[in-house]
Simulated assay, not measured.
Amino acid sequence: MKIRADCGIIGNPQQKNITVLALVKRYLKTKTGTKPQKKSNYRFVVNILKNEPFSGKKIGAIKTSDAKLFLIKLQSDGRGYSTVKTVRGVLRPAFQMAVDDDIIVKNPFGFQLAGVVVNDSKTREAISRDQMRKFLKFIHDDNTYCKYYEAL
């Protein structure tokens, strides 16, 4: 253990040398009892990170600007806002774990996502207004389903 003169926090200098991918994998090991869909999302993020040079960087060298530039790069490479948000949703708590373990001083992903990447996602409607009118008219006029019209 070594005492850092800048803030007096005791930390292990070797732990700062672990990569982003290794940190994420370590963080995911702490996530026990997760549902299958959540585990699938975690695997999705790990697969994205495996193909990115960013995942090979040492966590002690990552600055907030590096984190922002990485997320911007993901979006400019064609990843959607939802994917970028999912990746950040794993990286942010992983780096927070490193902060809590006194490996790093500050979480480089501790910023608002909206100020960095553009939310290009579109809200989808289940059915259009015209389709809804036709459906309700069918329910109203049908002998079998007309009893449900008031409920709808």
Rank of each mutant, 00 (worst) to 15 (best):
K2Q: 11
I3D: 09
R4P: 00
R4T: 02
A5D: 09
D6W: 02
D6I: 10
I9R: 15
I9S: 08
K16A: 01
K16Y: 00
V20D: 00
L21K: 00
Y27P: 03
T30A: 06
T30P: 01
T34H: 02
K38G: 03
K39F: 04
Y42M: 08
Y42P: 05
V46N: 10
N47D: 13
L49E: 01
N51D: 14
N51Q: 14
G60I: 01
K63C: 07
T64Q: 15
A67I: 04
K68F: 06
L69P: 06
Q75E: 13
D77G: 08
R79E: 09
G80E: 12
S82V: 12
T86R: 13
R88E: 12
R92T: 10
Q96E: 14
Q96K: 12
M97V: 03
M97P: 03
D100V: 04
D101G: 04
I104K: 04
K106W: 07
G110F: 06
Q112E: 14
L113W: 01
G115P: 09
G115Y: 06
V116R: 05
D120G: 14
S121I: 08
S121K: 12
I127G: 00
R129I: 13
K134R: 01
L136M: 15
F138R: 11
I139R: 03
D141C: 00
D141H: 00
D141Q: 07
N143I: 06
Y145T: 08
Y149A: 15
Y149R: 14
